[in-house]
């Protein structure tokens, strides 16, 4: 691999990794607070992309459409929690998981019914799809924009988590919900914030994804969502920086393995799971994670 190919793949890897990271943050935050794998999180990403599509279709300018989509996705995320997860807070975890699968399936099929299963061209405006050429390296604008925005968002999330009273409440929830409630904190409100935040990031990730691979379909969130979850586990579930790290590792691996061994291209989507299995075999807490499931003796 010569230098320019390497650089080309490197920027591709950063860009893909950023998208995984954005979605992984939502998984890791919900898991951190509720110990729930929110199966529907990947679908929120799809909802975000489709809401942009819809908003542009009714005539809104693209930047406005993006804001509408992010707000809409946050609403969907918070609503799933209020309707489907909240009544099950004290139920066995399995019930919660089954419900999450139900929500995921509901969203996928609802959008399938509404928009049809055929992939739709994503209405990305021309100014976002331009590319620069640096020597032999082609740099699409998004490849630069995505990592920059991801880093900014990560900074913002960390700031919220560690510098605000909401962040303190979120981190406290991760330890013990009943105690937090006893402290007079409205736990459900805080959980809603977690869902809103996670959903907003997922929507942003989904929009980036849609601009980069300019088509969207109702099942687009399934595989990306699962990969992002794998990234979150890889980084250590519960840890926001871990999720970002995991996202980048996964993004780089996918890009570079395929670049070096093109014959493995068909297995690209399986890498995440090999990672997942390897991590769980050798270091179940992931790279940055703490042991969330200690023995209960």
């Amino acid at each position: 691999m010569d230098l320019s190919t390497f650089l080309q793949q490197l920027v591709n890897g950063i860009s893909l990794g950023s998208m995984y990271a954005l979605i992984a943050i939502g998984y890791t935050m919900v898991y951190g607070t509720l110990r729930l794998i929110n199966f529907a999180h990947g679908d929120i990403m799809m909802v975000g992309a489709f809401l942009v599509y819809l908003a542009v279709a009714v005539g809104l300018p693209f930047p406005v459409a993006v804001l509408v989509a992010i707000a809409g996705s946050m609403a969907v995320g918070v609503m799933t929690d209020k309707i489907a997860y909240k009544p099950l807070r004290d139920a066995p975890k399995i019930s919660l998981l089954i419900t999450a699968i139900g929500i995921s399936f509901f969203l996928e099929n609802l959008f399938n019914v509404l928009f049809g299963g055929v992939p739709k061209a994503f209405p990305a405006p021309g100014y976002l799809t331009i590319s620069f050429k640096l020597g032999d390296v082609i740099l699409p604008l998004m490849v630069i924009v995505i990592p920059v925005i991801t880093v900014l968002i990560l900074g913002a999330v960390l700031w919220v988590l560690f510098k605000t009273k909401y962040g303190m409440a979120i981190r406290a929830l991760a330890f013990d919900i009943p105690t937090v409630k006893l402290m007079g904190i409205n736990a459900d409100y805080i959980i809603s914030i977690v869902f809103a935040l996670g959903s907003a990031l997922a929507a942003i990730g989904g929009i980036f994804y849609a601009i980069s691979y300019p088509s969207i379909d109702p099942l687009m969130g399934v595989i990306v969502g699962l990969k992002a979850f794998a990234a979150a586990v890889l980084g250590g579930i519960g840890s926001v920086t871990g999720a970002v790290l995991g996202g980048f590792i996964l993004g780089f691996t996918e890009i570079f393995v395929v670049a070096l061994f093109p014959e493995l291209g068909g297995y690209k989507d399986a890498f995440a799971f090999f990672f997942l299995i390897l991590v769980l075999l050798f270091k179940p807490t992931g790279i940055m994670g703490k042991d969330l499931e200690r023995g209960r003796f």
Binding site: L36, K93, L97, F273, L276, L280, P284
Partner: peptide, 8 residues
């Protein structure tokens, strides 16, 4: 165990 099993 638990939800990890599900995802694996």
């Amino acid at each position: 165990r638990g939800d990890y099993l599900a995802i694996v």
